[in-house]
């Protein structure tokens, strides 16, 4: 991930989280009532997820084209990924989605301690995912599979395998960046929850963060088979 993009996208994300109310009351001046405000922020968040879908859709399209063109080479490249680590990460993310969903439920039921605990659990699962991802990246680095000037691959179709790893790093990199931003945002929500900002009447920020987090999970649900499992049969078969 390039350094220039980090802060930029960070600004984007924080900007997109639905407008937070001032502390003197959750209802903003230009809305009539909370119902209108909540519906607006939910719709806004969904529209944002739509743009995220199309954003990932761009690189997915490119991936689809090359899968079509270089099927064998992509299977070859995929067989160098670690299915066990990938599966572990998938399971970790599902856990984190569960804790996130339950966090929203805790907020709806006014259970402040539970809410804080579940948010922290979600962050920890997210962190574990990133650590494992880091370990995988390190393996790839050692094996010379990081695309670019230092890419090194012995075997047939080296160029097309290079392309596969370009996609692997770009797609998982953007995904990981989304997770980092989500975790950072959640840290802020933990503080606010501990302060008692949320409860039955007002939990939209938790709910919106939940939508975002689940979306990031869904992206992984597709990346996992597209990148990891694709080569698994090849690896097992030979």
């Amino acid at each position: 991930m390039s350094q220039q993009h980090g802060p930029v996208t960070a600004a984007v994300m924080t900007g997109t989280m639905p407008d937070m109310p001032d502390h003197d009351g959750p209802l903003q001046h230009h809305f009539d009532d909370m119902a209108q405000q909540n519906e607006s922020s939910a719709l806004g968040m969904w529209l944002f997820l739509l743009t995220e879908l199309m954003f990932f859709g761009g690189v997915m399209t490119a991936y689809a084209v090359y899968r079509y063109l270089f099927n064998a080479a992509f299977a070859e490249g995929a067989s160098h990924l670690d299915v066990r680590l990938g599966t572990t990460n998938t399971i970790i993310l599902i856990f984190s989605s569960l804790t996130m969903a339950l966090a929203v439920r805790a907020a709806q039921m006014d259970k402040r301690k539970l809410l804080v605990g579940l948010l922290i659990a979600t962050m920890l699962f997210g962190g574990a995912f990133l650590v494992i991802k880091g370990i995988e990246y390190a393996h790839k680095w050692e094996a010379g599979h990081v695309p670019g000037a230092y890419f090194h691959y012995e075997g047939p179709l080296a160029n097309h395998v290079h392309l596969f790893f370009s996609f692997y790093f770009t797609m998982t990199g953007i995904h990981a960046l989304h997770m980092v931003l989500g975790i950072g945002w959640m840290a802020w929500l933990v503080l606010r929850s501990a302060r008692g900002d949320f409860g039955v009447g007002y939990y939209a920020p938790i709910e919106m963060t939940g939508l975002y987090w689940h979306f990031v999970d869904i992206v992984w649900i597709f990346l996992f088979p597209l990148l990891y499992l694709f080569g698994a049969g090849a690896a097992a078969g030979h």
């Binding site: 743009t51 199309m54 859709g57 761009g58 690189v59």
Partner: peptide, 9 residues
């Protein structure tokens, strides 16, 4: 909303 993210990518 639907187009800009693709050119961004």
């Amino acid at each position: 909303i639907l187009g800009t993210p693709v050119v961004a990518m």
